[in-house]
């Protein structure tokens, strides 16, 4: 890549969010990779390729520091998540992601307020 600084910074922001919060790195990566000049449709796939190893690193660190993990519950969640992931790829062609993401954005803001005030 001719201008590696922008992806470097995008990766840094994504890694920090991913490591510190365990979520949100993917959304950041999609936005920042698009700003780097990646076509919007490829930026999501590329963001996954970026966040996958970063998530693994973050998970290992948290686990090594003694954070507990329920393997049984995790397996059940993954088993339910995989068909959901498949369904998402089907729904994407039929439902406007703009509408869905706006609804979800509102849910996030409301949830953020609840979390902050807890």
């Amino acid at each position: 890549m001719k201008r590696p600084l922008l992806p470097f910074l995008a990766g840094a922001a994504t890694g920090l969010a991913n490591g510190l919060f365990g979520a949100g790195g993917g959304l950041l990566a999609v936005v920042l990779l698009n700003r780097c000049g990646i076509d919007k449709k490829s930026s999501h796939a590329t963001a996954l390729a970026l966040t996958l190893p970063l998530s693994l690193i973050s998970a290992i660190i948290l686990f090594c520091f003694g954070t507990s993990l329920s393997l049984g519950a995790l397996c059940i969640t993954i088993l339910c998540g995989l068909p959901g992931a498949w369904l998402g790829t089907v729904l994407l062609k039929k439902i406007s992601p703009t509408l869905l993401s706006r609804i979800f954005g509102i849910v996030m803001v409301v949830s953020a307020v609840r979390m902050f005030l807890r």
Binding site: L27, G84, G88, T89
Partner: peptide, 8 residues
């Protein structure tokens, strides 16, 4: 899983 694959 649905939201993850739709990128939202």
């Amino acid at each position: 899983g649905i939201c993850a694959s739709m990128g939202i």
